[in-house]
Amino acid sequence: MSVETATKSIALIKRVLSQSGGPTGPFMPAGLGTRSAPPPPGVEPLTLTALSGVEDLDRDELVLTALAGTPVDRVAQEAAAVGLVLCPLIPLGTGGTLGGLYASGSESPCAPVEGHLRDAVLGVEGLTGSGAPIKSGGRVVKNVTGYDLTRFLCGSRGALAVITRLHWRLRLLPTDSIEVVIDCPATDVGARLRALRALPDPTAVRIDLNAGRTRVRALIEGGRPSASARAEQLKRGLGPGAEILSVPDEQLAPWLAPPAGTREHASVRGWIERIEELGTQSDGVATVFPYIGVGTTSAPPASAPLDAIPFGGEITRRVRSAWDPEGRLWDPHRPVPREVLS
């Protein structure tokens, strides 16, 4: 049995978490369900989509404040209306809620130039599993006041805190986007990446592998003369066969998001080897963002169950037990009790 707890206000969430009667959880904070698997049996969803709204958007200071359940696309739309985009580069069509984007800790392929997703969030508010208030950061770009819970909770998947409000960094919307691409055999990817590393970093680098052939793609944000100059420079650096293509706005979100598949982590060097290996397989398919170490492959899905996915280490374990001694928030580590399964 699963009771959906729709929450309209932060006070209500707090009551749910700290009350002794009523539903006791464990709860899994939930948004639109685009980024996480449904709660395992015995875990109740704590749906936050009613906690929605952009509270403030400051065009001069380049920061916005929104409730965690606000759909990312709604935020992106409001920002785009004044010529801005959510950092690092979160385009329309990204999907999900802002809180979900944050709590799932999605890596941004733009990290080498724009920073990780966690670097785009300036402040967070939320509640611990026992209903105590969490506050970190704020609306200014530099802030070392107190522990950096803003970064710590990025990727915490609702297991350490219920995120209620976020302060997010904005920047100017790229007027258009271009990519420099080169097609090559999988065995040539190493040479291409080495060539790229000697050039000014593009916004993001992506490799698509399909049946032994790869396409190395470097994204550049355009709109200014200097962007085309940079694209030309990359094209020359990548060697004969490289070409410059335009990336239409609606293509930007898919460009930055890997398609479904088995998620893998490896270093740049590791990915070069992995792509060579996958390239020898006739059904080898992969989408890789080598500079941030992640990609999805057509390799057989990992057999590890949900509870074995690594989730933090010693620090996370200790903080969890201090903030949530009664275990009101779900624990990605804990095997689901047998009786619940039956």
Partner: peptide, 10 residues
């Protein structure tokens, strides 16, 4: 990249 909370960031 971090798997789970950003302990590094903390």
């Amino acid at each position: 990249a971090t798997a789970g909370p950003d302990e590094r960031g903390l």
